[in-house]
Amino acid sequence: MSAPPQHDLDALGHALSAMPDAMVVVDRAGVIRLANAHAGDLFGYAVSELVGSPIEMLVPERVRPFHPELRTGHVPHGYQPLNHENQVTGQHRDGRLLPLEITLSHVETTAGSMRVAAARDVTEKREVEAALREAERRYRQLSEQDPLTGLSNRRRFTEELRVGLEERAGGALVLLDVDGLKQVNDTLGHHAGDLLLSGVGDALAGSVGPDDLAARIGGDEFALLLATSDAGELERCVASVEASIASLPAEPTPTASIGYLLLADLTSAERTLAGALIRADDALYRAKRAGGARSCRG
């Protein structure tokens, strides 16, 4: 097998000067033998300062003591051809840390085996990626969140209820209508009605635990999906919701009609999204027909 071609360092340096990325060529001892102007600009050094210096000058100070081991560890069993692309951190002359995308390759030269590193500052790329992730998070949040109360919306609630019915035996469902919202809107204006709905949302959010879900599913309609399968605990939660709503600073004193049930009480035929909602809705309307300001179990 013929030996790999050897490159003249001067010719290699000339080729590096035409590259769009920051380029450095490092010998087996970790000494920079060549660098182009982009490398100088990236790290804040003159090219003449880079050449002849250890590559460790371009890595964060905390990494420098063990960087030689990391550097040689890239090439097991001596120098073998490699082509690695990694995201690493470099250090500017002024101490700033630089997020870099670096590609390493091996080249044989007339002066021996060398490592070629092409580096690109990915600060802007990471900022764009972070902005995209945040935009995606916000989109998901908006698509699953009621904008007035900050609670989950009907879409999120129905999906969680569907999953709960299919995958979990326990849990509880609570449906709630705010009594007299139309009267508040008609007499005090929609701003007062919105304040009442926001207050009810806060009351519900404060009455549930981390494994529960509170949602606004319509104009004056709210729902809770609770993790508990204990009837006593469910009734205490409903009582807490009623008390929290009654304590809201509004006139007349706010009340709600509530229908609730344990999912374990559903028959096999009712254990569907529609079946569970119909049964809880029946309990809710029993409370409304009795004059509101009360709860009924389904």
Rank of each mutant, 00 (worst) to 15 (best):
P5G: 07
P5H: 08
H7R: 12
H7C: 13
L9Q: 04
A11Y: 10
A15M: 12
S17I: 02
S17H: 15
A18C: 10
A18F: 14
M19K: 03
D21F: 02
M23D: 04
V25G: 06
V26C: 05
D27K: 06
V31H: 06
N36W: 05
A39Y: 15
F43E: 01
P54N: 14
I55S: 08
E56Y: 00
P60E: 13
V63M: 15
H67C: 03
P68C: 00
P76W: 02
H77L: 11
G78Q: 05
Y79D: 12
L82A: 12
V88M: 15
Q91K: 09
H92V: 07
G95F: 02
R96H: 14
R96P: 07
L97P: 01
L98G: 10
L104H: 06
L104G: 05
H106D: 12
H106V: 13
E108Q: 13
S113W: 12
S113L: 06
A119R: 05
K125H: 15
A130P: 00
E134I: 02
E134K: 13
A135L: 10
R137I: 01
R138D: 09
L142W: 02
E144Q: 15
Q145N: 09
P147E: 10
G150I: 04
L151V: 03
N153Y: 13
N153C: 07
F157G: 08
F157C: 07
E159R: 13
L161P: 06
G164K: 09
L165W: 03
E166R: 15
E167P: 01
R168V: 06
G170D: 14
G171P: 01
G171F: 04
L173N: 05
L175H: 00
L176D: 07
D177K: 05
V184F: 08
V184C: 11
H191S: 12
A192I: 01
A192W: 00
A192P: 02
L195V: 05
L195D: 14
L196F: 11
L197A: 07
L197Q: 07
V200E: 08
V200R: 10
G201Y: 11
S207P: 02
P210T: 07
D211M: 05
D212Q: 06
A215C: 09
F222L: 09
F222T: 03
L226I: 04
T228A: 10
S229I: 01
E235D: 13
R236L: 12
E242V: 08
E242G: 02
E242Y: 00
S244E: 12
A246T: 06
A246I: 02
A246S: 15
A250N: 00
A250G: 00
E251S: 14
S257E: 04
G259R: 04
Y260K: 00
Y260W: 04
L262M: 12
A264I: 03
S268C: 03
T272G: 02
L273G: 05
A287V: 04
A287W: 02
R289A: 12
A293P: 09
A293K: 13
A293D: 15
R297Y: 08
